[in-house]
Nucleic acid binder design. Structure first.
Length: 542
DNA sequence: TTTAGGG
DNA sequence: CCCTAAA
């Protein structure tokens, strides 16, 4: 019912007004009117027209003017009751008065009490609107609220209404303030007949009102704007939820996922490398589902929504101790950050937080990187938003890129594809330090690639050996994995072979190649040193 | 903490 | 890439 709507509206806005925020007051009020049934605002507008409302230039002004008008009406009635009779009505409708927003004025100040006291005043129509309309035959408030009663604007037609239509449980303080405010207004008038100017303005306002409907509806976004102003965090989370494709999925994201996202985001700082870099990266979501059953889950939504309250969710994201190892490996690049966020849930999350607080500027740069496509595809919704806001950035080299905050990308730790550049660096490292000195290689060759841990280097080397056919693979079953999806350059494979002969893997063990050579008389499928050299010769020759 | 190795 | 045991 309109009355109920009105009631709730006023109450809520009394709360708003208590904040004393001028802006909120004005805009919110206007918004509320918009939220109400259209007929209601129409009726309000119509009633306002009685009081010679001066149409404002903008919608906001116009709507706030509605409110102001009602105040004016109240004031007028007060004045009438007080028997004051001096100035004319128009003085009460001064434009500045109508438009200007007074912090002390609240929507709730549109009391019906005062209105009810008046009789034969042009403001009676507004009274109709505000009142229950239980008595006036000309002003059934329901009609007024629900239908544009333009004919009601004929102020002469409307007679005084009883004042017991207090449908708005107003806050007395507000009412008082409004009344006081009204008394300050330079308007004093007696009951009078509508002046010519009055009628003219009425007409204009009516026309104005009729033209409003669509605009009123279209002003909805302002509410959002206000909300965001008032409460940025909910807006943030809302935004995140908007983009979120699968809430369930997001909710199931765990710490692990965060970690991975964070690390993966660093991928964006990787330079656009060789063509092979443009590899098919596994979409974020598919991996997420894989991760979910593992149980290390935490409510991502909550995590995001309360990222300023990170400590709260700490308990929910219990990370296995072992997990920390790698986390530390990665976060070791930011020792200071971890210190800053010692209370946070996990170290990854720490980085997440810190990234927000300290490295937000870095986010700007990721958008135009070559890998951003991957990034955008895989990023979590919010991160995607961040990424999209990124500015242009010129291509940078791996090592020169300062580490990017992980949150930029939704990519997880896993499936950060190795680029050719990285592989080359790894090969260089192995050639320099040999196999097994992963931590050293990492320090010297991947110092800027925090996402590559020594374990990663080791794994990659092992995979390279597999790819080169050096390492024994497929012990069980013939099921050879198809490595052709991302073929490595021959030069790299050869290099790996070369190094494998020099630095057998694993370290300290005898090279597998000779081993294979000895154990299997049939060398047709195994690469031996002689095979390797022959291949190398042929390649070099060609 | 690093490395190796299974998965 | 993860996980874990062992060094």
């Amino acid at each position: 019912m309109p009355n109920e709507v009105e009631f709730g509206y006023f109450r809520s806005h009394n709360d708003f007004c208590s904040m004393g925020d001028d802006y909120l007051l004005g805009v919110e009020f206007a918004e509320s009117i918009t939220d109400l049934d259209y007929g209601c605002s129409e009726g309000l507008a119509a009633s306002v027209s009685d009081s010679q409302m001066q149409s404002a230039g903008s919608d906001t002004r116009w709507k706030s003017s509605l409110f102001q008008i009602k105040q004016v009406l109240d004031c007028q009635k007060d004045q009438l009751d007080m028997g004051s009779s001096e100035s004319d009505i128009p003085s009460c409708n001064k434009s500045e008065m109508l438009v200007e927003e007074n912090p002390s004025i609240s929507p709730g100040s549109c009391t019906v009490q005062n209105i009810g006291k008046t009789h034969n005043s042009p403001s009676c129509s507004s009274q109709d609107i505000l009142s229950d309309g239980n008595d006036g035959e000309h002003s059934p408030s329901d009609e007024m609220f629900c239908s544009p009663m333009t004919q009601k604007n004929d102020e002469t037609e409307v007679t005084g209404q009883d004042g017991e239509t207090n449908i708005f449980p107003r806050q007395e303080a507000l009412t008082t303030s409004v009344q006081a405010n009204c008394t300050d207004l330079p308007m004093q008038k007696r009951s009078r007949k509508p002046t010519q100017r009055y009628a003219d303005e009425l007409t204009s306002v009516q026309a104005n009102c009729t033209g409003r409907p669509t605009q009123k509806r279209s002003r909805k976004p302002t509410q959002r704007y206000v909300d965001e102003l008032a409460d940025p965090i909910p807006a943030y989370s809302r935004k995140r939820r908007e983009v979120s494709t699968s809430t369930l999925k997001d909710k199931s994201l765990g710490v692990k996922d965060h970690k991975k996202c964070h690390v993966a985001s660093r991928a964006t700082q990787l330079p656009a490398e060789e063509s092979s870099v443009i590899a098919i990266q596994v979409p974020f979501g598919s991996l997420v589902h894989k991760e979910c059953p593992k149980g290390r889950t935490c409510d991502l939504v909550q995590h995001v929504d309360t990222r300023n309250l990170m400590t709260k969710s700490k308990g929910k994201c219990v990370t296995p101790n072992k997990k920390k190892k790698r986390d530390e490996c990665i976060s070791a690049v930011h020792p200071k950050k971890r210190d800053d966020c010692a209370a946070s849930k996990t170290k990854r999350d720490d980085q997440f937080t810190v990234a927000h607080s300290k490295k937000s500027s870095d986010r700007i740069s990721l958008a135009s990187q070559k890998k951003k496509d991957d990034c955008i595809i895989a990023m979590t919704p919010k991160k995607r938003g961040d990424c999209l806001t990124g500015a242009h950035q010129k291509k940078r080299d791996d090592c020169t890129i300062p580490e990017r905050p992980e949150e930029v990308s939704g990519r997880r730790k896993h499936h950060r594809l190795w680029t050719i550049t990285e592989v080359r660096k790894l090969i260089d490292g192995v050639s320099q330090y040999g196999v097994g000195r992963w931590s050293r290689i990492k320090k010297l060759f991947f110092s800027t690639s925090a996402h590559r841990t020594s374990v990663d280097l080791k794994d990659k080397w092992r995979n390279l050996l597999k790819a080169s056919g050096i390492l024994d693979q497929g012990r069980q079953g013939e099921k050879k994995r198809n490595m052709a999806w991302r073929p490595l350059p021959k030069s790299i494979l050869l290099r790996v072979c070369e190094l494998a002969t020099i630095y057998p893997y694993p370290k300290g063990q005898r090279p597998k190649i000779p081993l294979i050579h000895h154990d299997s008389p049939d060398r047709s499928t195994d690469i031996t040193l002689s095979d390797y050299r022959r291949i190398l010769r042929s390649i070099n020759g060609s």
